[in-house]
Design a protein around this nucleic acid. Structure first.
Length: 490
RNA sequence: CGGGGUGUAGCGCAGCCCGGUUAGCGCACCUGCUUUGGGAGCAGGGGGUCCCAAGUUCGAAUCUUGGUACCCCGACCA
């Protein structure tokens, strides 16, 4: 094999890296922790963007853009916020370079030191709320529902392609409301948007929940999240939606005059998903042969490989296939006829399997004569020969089937890897196996921290539609009303 | 920031211990011919600051010292 992918069993991390690099999604960049997103990877992100952006607009939001650089002083205005982000900020201190007077190369000009250092945004709450102060005076200015697509930088100690890069692309919604209830509703609405999107497009089931206080966003009153399970049983936070209370309004003094003519602080939310979703997509579905992409996000949904001897045969095949290609395109299906004569069919098969193209059609002269075509689906690695008549309908149906089959497979995997633990002994044993644990917790940070210290497991979330039941905390034995989800996480 | 590993052609590696022709192999790339139903064959060809710096030496990819980058594991985090 030309491009060997490490098997999942041998080395899961290496498998993931091989997949990303060899399928052409991304490259390492010269800067630690940063990555180049290549056209194929960016194509997936663009599809995610398009679907999400549509949903944001449908729920009343508009896009805007706020600057990359934030005055250092802004970060310190909200105490919990600075506490959470201070350790991972990239700082701009100078604005000019010059030739090194002592030799070759270039140095930072010490004369060009900034009066106030600038922070490269790790998130934009501060710069946005500084602006909202000027935009909001009356209840008539509310709600303010703004989203931005942007890049942010968090100087992480350890990075991983897509899952945790120093710079990443995301969207961040920042809304302002007149009442707490309205803001909470917005927080929950956007969590739902995320959950539905991930389940429908990424074919990945998620658990909707609230974070424990320990895991809350820096500056939030309540953090909602969606948690997904990867193939190795680890949890991945796929999106977050925060109810920020009046924390940022108070920090940036954003008040409005209500209907009764009284000044009140504005209620806020923020919510985001990032290019990490591309990582989730890869890790959730792919196999040892390469990527497995759900049709709704695959940059290329159908590839057609002609098998022929000589130009004359190829022309015959082209003539037969062209109407199909036209029809598929008319249905909004992305399709490519790979008639590159410098590569042989076997090579192409392997290549498109590695790149996760959901459907591959192959037609040789045998099929041509018999009016058939070979159809291969990537998700189940099945192939068969079907009649060429009505093939467009067959493909459209098959794409739907692949999308739903991938979801079902992921759902079955996840559900079979969530186990209940009712004693500490049971918990310790189960946490060594892949998957999530559903267990009672006494609600205290001390217990959560102790469990994390002993097992590396954290509370991923307190599920939203959680059945209430009497129980005892797995660790302390104190009374508990509901189970929470524990897992080791990315 | 601690532990481990690796820097030699676009990618993957050998050579280093024991210094010595023109630094080698596989894949990829280019040209030609034959091929094309699961990663083609033959022939010819191009491509190298051997991570950087200093040192030892007649001579360094190889030895010494210092630096640096990246990957993996952990602590931190979306």
């Amino acid at each position: 094999m030309a491009k060997e992918i490490t098997s999942r069993k041998e080395d899961y991390s290496q498998w993931y890296n091989d997949l990303v690099l060899k399928s052409g999604l991304a490259d390492y960049s010269p800067v630690r922790g940063c990555m180049v997103i290549k056209p194929y990877g960016f194509g997936i992100w663009e599809k995610m963007q398009a679907a999400l952006d549509k949903r944001f607009k449908e729920t009343g939001h508009v896009n805007a853009y706020f600057p990359l650089l934030i005055p250092k002083s802004f970060l310190s205005k909200e105490a919990a916020h600075v506490e959470g982000f201070a350790k991972e900020c990239a700082v701009v201190t100078h604005y000019r370079l010059k030739n090194d007077p002592n030799g070759k190369g270039i140095i930072v000009d010490p004369e060009a030191k900034l009066e106030e250092e600038l922070i490269i945004r790790p998130t934009s709450e501060t710069i946005i709320w500084n602006q909202y102060k000027n935009w909001i005076q009356s209840y008539r200015d509310l709600p303010l529902l703004i989203n931005q697509w942007a890049n942010v930088v968090r100087w992480e100690m350890r990075t991983r392609l897509f899952l945790r890069t120093a710079e990443f692309l995301w969207q961040e919604g920042h809304t302002a409301h007149a009442t707490a209830q309205e803001a909470v509703e917005e927080t929950e609405r956007m969590l739902d948007v995320y959950a539905n999107f991930v389940e429908e497009y990424l074919a990945l089931p998620v658990i909707r929940g609230r974070k424990s206080p320990n895991e809350r966003f820096a500056g939030a009153v309540e953090t909602y999240c969606i948690e997904a399970m990867m193939q190795d049983g680890l949890a991945l936070q796929a999106g977050t939606s925060h109810f920020l209370g009046q924390n940022f309004a108070k920090a940036f003094d954003v008040q409005f005059l209500n209907k009764e003519g009284k000044q009140e602080y504005v209620w806020a939310t923020s919510w985001g998903v990032s290019t990490r979703l591309v990582g989730a997509l890869i890790m959730a579905h792919s196999d040892d042969e390469g990527l497995v992409l759900p049709p709704k996000l695959a940059p290329l949904q159908v590839v057609i490989v002609p098998i022929h001897k000589g130009e004359e045969d190829l022309n015959k095949l082209r003539d037969k296939l062209l109407p199909l290609i036209t029809e598929l395109k008319a249905r909004g299906i992305t399709v490519k006829l790979d008639d590159d004569d410098t590569k042989r069919p076997g090579f192409k098969f392997a290549e498109y399997e590695m790149r996760g193209v959901p459907i591959r059609l192959a037609m040789g002269m045998r099929d041509y004569e018999a009016n058939t075509v070979e159809v291969a689906r990537r998700d189940k690695k099945e192939k068969g020969t079907v009649s060429f008549d009505g093939i467009a309908d067959h493909i459209a149906a098959l794409l739907d089937d692949i999308q739903s089959n991938m979801y079902k497979t992921a759902l079955a995997f996840r559900d079979s890897h969530i186990r209940k633990a009712d004693t500490w002994e049971e918990f310790q044993k189960l946490i060594e196996e892949p998957g999530f644990i559903s267990a009672h917790w006494d609600g205290t940070s001390e217990t959560e921290e102790k469990i994390k210290e002993l097992t590396k497991a954290t509370i991923r979330c307190i599920p939203l539609d959680n059945p209430q039941e009497d129980g005892k905390c797995i660790f302390s034995g104190a009374a508990s009303k509901e189970r929470v989800i524990f897992a080791r996480a990315y």
